[in-house]
Design a protein around this nucleic acid. Structure first.
Lengths: 182, 182
DNA sequence: ATACACTAACCTACTACTAAGTAAGTGTCA
DNA sequence: TGACACTTACTTAGTAGTAGGTTAGTGTAT
């Protein structure tokens, strides 16, 4: 397989693993067996685990950009745009998974410094995305930033709760997030 | 040192480690070195890591009971009681830590079955605690359960966000939680 | 004497990471 | 056209370090 396809394939599988079990707990061994390669081959594409971690952060960032682009091309109510962001975000996370950014945050103290920075960057970017969508609802920048953090914290906390209390929690939370957006 | 004191000491240190780095990532080796013991000695008190995990869940449950007891003996507004619960909960978590229940949830798919059950139990118990405190504010049981889940999700999500965006986030969130309680 | 709290030394499995080698292809020059 | 240098995408076989867990034995207080 050519370089770019294989790299993408590894990033995609690693992202699934991170959503399932976190950054520190997934291993090149698991990953390689799933892809029908050797560990060494993954090291060929991503010299260190850290390099793969950084590539995944980039991947998440690209995903955010694509979502914002898709949402801004929709002709719907501004309130609906914010909710659409959350719907899209949740739809990429299976019921046995958590948000990959949350997974990185859970392992944060033991990440290599450069990966910490990348996680910080993508975390802040996501908050910025939501805050900007909220700007079309009410024009209070400070309040929107605070609201964005609340909405995101609640959504991601809920995704983790889902593991212990079951699936119906996300509907319960979504309804209440809608009230907060209003 | 006598059995009960040592056991308590191990649980206490392990709880700190779980708040800092999660259940899967803390090790008997680290723990033993901190306590000036050997790994084997910790295995003497807690045969398996799983046993220690269960003891920590018990410990968290006892902590919840004590908080509810303390809060119910206060002569304050019902709204304030709910907020006091959150203040107490947050005060036990340092700025480089996350909620231990969240930490267990983050590692959930790879916990032994019996520990999963214990985490589920303590998760639901905490939701029950908050929902009951809310019963003194508004008497709508279903809505209070939903509100409890929202408040807890937001708080715990925010504790994880704090690692990537810094400490001032908790004040921002607390103010907004107060509005939701009203 | 016996139970308790502990240690030294070990085992197996798994982690990230590396060294050395190879088959298949690409580009270039006589 | 064909020989040569080089690259890509891998493999096999390792390294050192750490994980959870075990076994057999030691010191001590009652």
């Amino acid at each position: 397989m050519d370089m770019e396809n294989r790299k993408e394939q590894i990033i995609e599988r690693a992202l699934v693993h991170i959503k399932k079990r976190g950054y520190l707990s997934f291993s090149y061994d698991h990953l390689s067996k799933e892809l029908g390669l050797t560990k060494a081959s993954i090291h060929y594409h991503f010299e260190k685990k850290e390099s793969l971690g950084l590539a995944i952060c980039d991947r998440i960032e690209i995903g955010l950009d694509q979502m914002i682009l898709a949402i801004n091309s929709m002709h719907i109510d501004p309130r609906e745009k914010t909710m659409e962001f959350f719907r899209m975000r949740i739809s990429h996370i299976n019921s046995d998974e958590i948000c990959p950014i949350s997974a990185f945050q859970a392992d944060f103290p033991y990440l290599p410094e450069i990966l910490k920075q990348s996680v910080q960057y993508v975390t802040k970017k996501e908050i910025g995305c939501v805050a900007e969508l909220l700007q079309d609802v009410h024009k209070n920048k400070n309040k929107n930033e605070a609201k964005a953090i609340l909405l995101l914290s609640a959504m991601k906390g809920a995704l983790q709760y889902r593991r212990a209390v079951g699936g119906e929690i996300m509907e319960t939370i979504s309804k209440q997030l809608e009230e907060i957006v209003q």
